[in-house]
Design a protein around this nucleic acid. Structure first.
Lengths: 164, 164
DNA sequence: CTTATACCTCTAATTATTAGAGGTCTTTGC
DNA sequence: GCAAAGACCTCTAATAATTAGAGGTATAAG
């Protein structure tokens, strides 16, 4: 399994669904969960458009826009309109933003990627499937508890239901 | 009749419909008809958005955008994105643009407004109705020649068909 | 515990830009 | 003169970001 990004997305969905994002993270460095999430996305992906951020953190463009407004007000990020396509806007971290982010704790993602990649492939697949199952359960209106996971079913089935 | 703008719009439509805009004006000052039209709109209306320009010259926003691109390339206009509403963009004339526009002949609009306002109201109404009739005829696929203008009908009927 | 404040989040509407296609006019080469 | 090329003009449809408006949650203050 090459892309651990799916795992991260699944993790984020679990975090949001369980309200960890707000209760656990809001104190640290004065940033809320979504704010941290977005700032990390900007740092990790480099020159990103609003749309790309939204896609990566599973939020609407409108939501990302308003959160960026607040971050920009605090001089933690800034926007640059693309010259090649003037519809697009790139978000960047300011130096202050990068500093703050570096000091902010990241209990969930800290060297997670490195460790995850050292796992056996079948184990990675199993973990991903489990996370997806949890995330789907959180977001589902009617929780269907019947289909139990088996290693066999996991290895066959790659996709997972998108958020309703 | 307070607004002579309707008369100007009607005039512009006649000009476009008869291709005067390109044949007669394109030589002067190196500007084409639509370019002149748009630059005058910017000068006369002050801080205008793209949408307002489009409305005033009866062109689509997309068309105004591309024409402004060419004018901006020649440093005759510049754009400023509104800080109050970041969707909006204001167009301005550069000094070069204002100079060029001042030297450009304006055979159709030169002190037209002042003279027009000195006419009697019924006469203004009559002229507007006539222009609208001509403009509508130009744009109509099937020209209906039957209804002749009368002073009575003109004074009653205020609206006119929008361009199809 | 209630109220106020500050976030988060969404959908729908708005504004500008771009893509793509088709048209006209002017210039250039023959 | 005439054909071809290049530069405009113009539109509709698609795309990107923002805003408006409404509803929800969490934190702070009394």
């Amino acid at each position: 399994m090459k892309n651990y990004e799916q795992v991260l997305v699944a993790l984020r969905r679990v975090i949001r669904a369980t309200d960890l994002h707000s209760k656990r993270l809001s104190k640290h460095a004065g940033l809320t969960g979504p704010q941290l999430l977005i700032m990390r996305t900007i740092r990790d992906l480099g020159e990103v458009t609003i749309g790309t951020i939204a896609e990566n953190v599973s939020l609407s463009q409108a939501t990302v826009t308003t959160i960026l407004d607040r971050l920009e007000l605090r001089k933690l990020v800034y926007r640059v309109r693309s010259t090649k396509d003037k519809r697009k806007v790139h978000a960047h971290l300011t130096e202050d933003g990068a500093d703050l982010l570096a000091r902010a704790p990241n209990p969930l993602q800290e060297d997670f990627i490195e460790k995850f990649q050292n796992l056996a492939e079948w184990e990675q697949t199993m973990i991903l499937a489990s996370l997806q199952r949890v995330a789907n359960m959180m977001n589902a209106d009617d929780i269907d508890a019947s289909p139990l996971l088996t290693v066999g079913s996991v290895l066959k089935d790659d996709g997972w239901k998108e958020k309703s």
